[in-house]
Amino acid sequence: MTNGIGRAASALLTYGLLGLMAFLSVFPFLWMVLGATNSSIDIIKGRVLPGEFLSTNVDKFFTQVNAPLVFWNSAKIAILATVLTLAVSSLAGYGFEIFRSRHRERLYRAMLLTLMIPFAALMIPLFIMMGKAGLINTHIAVVLPTIGSAFVVFYFRQCTKAFPSELRDAAKVDGLKEWQIFLFIYVPVMRSTYAAAFIIVFMTAWNNYLWPLIVLQSNETKTITLVISSLASAYYPDYGVVMVGTVLATLPTLAVFFFMQRQFVQGMLGSVK
């Protein structure tokens, strides 16, 4: 009897906590969508009901912002950064794990130390470098410094530990060269690792803020994150328009997450083995 009550209480507690956390996690999304349908003043006044300003806000957003161009800029930067990061990081993760040597092991540890470098310490020198290279206000300048990421290399190396060595041995018997083994065996086998890394790197690149803010000078090169920030810090921000912007900016990352959720969790599994 007491046991039954205890069990019911613990179930209540468990589901109560889960429900509360889930609600708190999702509520800002709901509020953001509702906000897109309300006027600026209603939003600041905390209105949580759907309003009648959706079409007005959307219209204003599309007249104030060259949306197709802005989204194209964001997509271009995010995809380019993701593909390049995945390519060089998986090469390195594979290289560090398969071809171990004392020097490389040392370099690997030194490389992990770069995780500690705050971006704030890099921005002025990086900006001067980009200026000298004539790359200011280009998307290349946004992408280049983000490709070499110790974190993603670390992730790929961790996952490579699960790569079956028999596959490599068999391939070598078949006479495949090292780059062929990597390209035709490792890459397909590690699909889910790539998928998970894709999600993480894509989201980071899509949401990147400070560096694009510094490098991109004209409205023609701006990304959606920059646009939201400047809409929100404008002289007279219209929160309805800002909400439309945040909804539109969040949709792509949300879509990537939902379409690749399974691979994502599988990939995560690999990273902590």
Partner: peptide
Amino acid sequence: NGWLFVAPVLGLIGLFMIYPIVWS
């Protein structure tokens, strides 16, 4: 082979992290 696989990342990190942080 080991160096070939890890060279791109090390090059990028060297150029865009180590060099600027030393400059800093």
